[in-house]
Design a protein around this nucleic acid. Structure first.
Ligand SMILES: [Mn+2]
Ligand SMILES: [Mn+2]
Ligand SMILES: [Mn+2]
Ligand SMILES: [Mn+2]
Lengths: 230, 230
DNA sequence: CATCGATCTTAGGCGTACCTAATACTTAGG
DNA sequence: CCTAAGTATTAGGTACGCCTAAGATCGATG
């Protein structure tokens, strides 16, 4: 029989579950379903259930879990999740600024190292970088105490009419898309003119004052977040 | 019953076993006993036997193991061990030179990170550092192909008469001793005048042309290696 | 050359984090 | 309000890396 025990509270796995719950819950901190977690983490739904039960049974509990109704982060869980996100984004910034990584390669390396650096390492790269507020994808870096300005960008895919918008951030999860967007000139702060939508859900856009029109696949457009239009 | 299977060839544990066999085998690549490994790695002797059997059964085998007669690294095992040592020493140098770590703190951080950095990370910090030959403790950094000049330093504890010697390297394993030696001025390249030996096995030494005499405990003296006397 | 102590291996087990297959729960449509 | 589809949980299992206890082997010594 499978028995539930206390999880190792500092493992890479636990970190990744907490980070995924934070991300999938969104700014409203909605309950997150097991299946959504399973898909995001690339594990079987049964594995998620098992882990959630262990996270909820820990001391302190890292999540609030109710059978069949998904999970929420507890205070302790949210604290740890934000700590890991802070590591992730500081490392990405460091790889980009100090080690001159191409932007599409920073995520994978950060995804591993975020679990293994010490407080000292965190501190030192932050100082070396001059206490940055943003990572190279345009995401806010949580403060040491876990505070972070509220996210209020909207996906480019929500823009349905012609409009001029400013890029807020780029999702870092798909290296090929990050590379494509970089070579196209779609980077945080860039001005984007949305020319129209395609049947397939993609977008036609121009960058800055250029007349050149690029077609973005639905996946690429979904990776772009823009400042909320006025 | 405990069954032997193929080990995960890229785990932190396997890395640490291989590195320990390399270190304990010394420049002559002597066979290494299970108990010696158990002590160095802080695990039970039975755990070592189990792991050695798995390492020997792998494809390719990482060690040559015979019951009751210790292990040797195979070619593949030696290659991996040197790769990890290269990571370790590049990371230490990076923490010291770029992130301004106190020297006594570099080892612990490197001991963890050495298992998780990518080839790209290794490359980039090496370039940033200008392709260093030595880590901050005075140890040679293996080349990318695993080649490394032969070690021929001798322990300070082997010096029994008054003599003037030059420090080659400092063992990084005990942070307290590394700190003590740093504050004393005993660093790679420093000139050391050995004044005499103590009953307890320690040494009395002066640094450079100073007349001040420091007493080194046997443990501290053992952490210091010097250039072979002529 | 027999014995004893040190060293090493085998046997059996545990915790973490995964898996598949079977079962249970929830909810939307009819 | 009943049922089927989709979602989630339970049951049973594996690999890894560690543990303790018990038994085997080795080698120095008398
Ligand atoms: Mn991660
Ligand atoms: Mn990121
Ligand atoms: Mn290590
Ligand atoms: Mn070192």
């Amino acid at each position: 029989m499978t028995v539930r025990r206390q999880p190792n509270p500092n493992s890479e796995s636990v970190d990744n579950y907490l980070k995924a719950i934070l991300a999938l819950g969104g700014p409203e901190e909605n309950r997150v379903a097991s299946n959504a977690l399973a898909q995001r983490l690339g594990v079987a739904p049964a594995s998620v259930t098992n882990m959630l039960q262990k996270l909820a049974a820990g001391l302190p509990p890292l999540v609030e879990y109710e059978r069949h109704r998904g999970v929420l982060l507890s205070d302790a869980g949210k604290r740890r999740a934000l700590e890991v996100v802070r590591h992730h984004r500081l490392i990405e910034t460091f790889l980009y600024e100090v080690l001159n990584y191409p932007i599409e390669e920073v995520h994978e390396e950060a995804e591993r190292l975020e679990h293994f650096i010490s407080e000292r390492f965190e501190e030192r790269i932050e100082a070396k970088l001059g206490y940055p507020k943003m990572d190279p994808h345009g995401h806010c870096i949580p403060a040491m105490d876990g505070r972070m300005p509220k996210e209020n960008s909207v996906p480019l895919t929500h823009v349905v009419r012609k409009a001029t918008v400013v890029v807020d951030s780029i999702s870092d999860r798909d290296a090929a898309i990050v590379k494509l967007l970089r070579t196209t000139g779609i980077v945080p702060g860039a001005q984007l003119r949305v020319r129209g939508r395609h049947a397939d859900g993609g977008h036609d856009v121009s960058i800055g004052s250029s007349v050149k029109v690029y077609h973005l696949s639905p996946e690429a457009a979904d990776a772009v977040k823009i400042h909320p239009p006025p």
